[in-house]
Simulated scan of single mutants.
Amino acid sequence: MGVQIAKAMGHHVTVISSSDRKREEALEHLGADAFLVSSDEAEMRGAAQESLDYILDTIPAVHSLEPYLSLLKVDGKLLLVGAPESLQFDPVSVILGRKTIAGSYIGSMEETQQLLEFWAEKGLTSMTEVVKMDYVNTAMERMERNDVRYRFVLDVAGSNLQE
């Protein structure tokens, strides 16, 4: 959703992923302008250093921020929404580059309303997979395997529920 919102706002968007698996989806379906594989050290080194204004970090696991911080321009911002248990970074890279690390779980009601209005105005849609209640255990297993693109929607009303 972040890619779609940033594109709708007119930004140049680079998706960074740990594998090449999401490249086609990011470029062709979400509209990203560029794609980097973070696990490919040569590709990350070859990326234009200090070229990004913002990075939206959605990684929920412990990871080093160094490869990402090096991509930020002076005064760039790394925004955390993935909530890892801990982070690893060299404070000097933040201080010397006047970089900011910030985070948020959720916006205010007013911000959420503004985002929904923007989403509707731009005709954006989210990628969802609608499932019935009898599929919920399989859905949970798929979530644990990271086999969901991008959200499950549980159709309670359309499910055959018995009391």
Score class of each variant (00 low, 15 high):
Thr100Cys: 07
Ala120Phe: 12
Leu69Asp: 07
Ser126His: 08
Leu65Phe: 07
Val153Cys: 09
Gln113Ile: 13
Leu96Gly: 11
Thr125Pro: 00
Ala47Ser: 03
Met143Ala: 02
Phe118Thr: 01
Leu96Ile: 15
Lys77Ser: 08
Leu96Phe: 15
Ser126Phe: 11
Asn137Pro: 00
Tyr135Arg: 14
Ala61Ser: 05
Glu111Asp: 08
Leu52Gly: 03
Val156Asn: 04
Ser104Met: 12
Ser51Trp: 04
Pro60Val: 00
Ile59Cys: 12
Pro84Ser: 07
Glu85Pro: 04
Leu87Asp: 02
Ala83Arg: 02
Phe89Asp: 04
Asp90Asn: 15
Asp134His: 15
Glu41Lys: 15
Asp134Tyr: 11
Glu144Gln: 15
Lys77Asp: 05
Ile55Gly: 08
Glu66Tyr: 04
Ala139Gln: 05
Arg149Cys: 08
Val62Leu: 03
Val153Glu: 08
Leu56Ser: 02
Trp119Val: 05
Ser108Thr: 05
Tyr54Arg: 11
Leu79Arg: 05
Leu96Ala: 15
Gly76His: 01
Ala83Ile: 09
Asp75Asn: 12
Leu80Ala: 11
Ala120Cys: 01
Leu65Gln: 00
Tyr150Ala: 10
Lys132Gly: 11
Asp147Lys: 03
Val74Gly: 04
Leu65Tyr: 13
Ala61Val: 05
Lys99Cys: 03
Ile95Phe: 15
Leu78His: 05
Met44Glu: 01
Thr112Asp: 08
Gln49Lys: 15
Glu141Thr: 03
Ile55His: 00
Leu71Trp: 08
Val74Pro: 02
Leu79Cys: 12
Leu154Glu: 03
Ser86His: 08
Ile55Thr: 05
Val130Ala: 14
Leu56Val: 05
Leu56Pro: 01
Arg149Gln: 07
Leu96Tyr: 13
Met109Arg: 12
Leu56Gly: 06
Tyr135Ser: 06
Ile59His: 07
Val74Tyr: 13
Leu115Ser: 06
Glu43Ser: 10
Pro91Ala: 13
Ile101Val: 11
Trp119Cys: 06
Leu116Gln: 10
Leu80Ile: 10
Gln113Thr: 14
Leu72Lys: 06
Ser93Val: 12
Met109Ser: 05
Lys77Glu: 14
Asn137Gly: 11
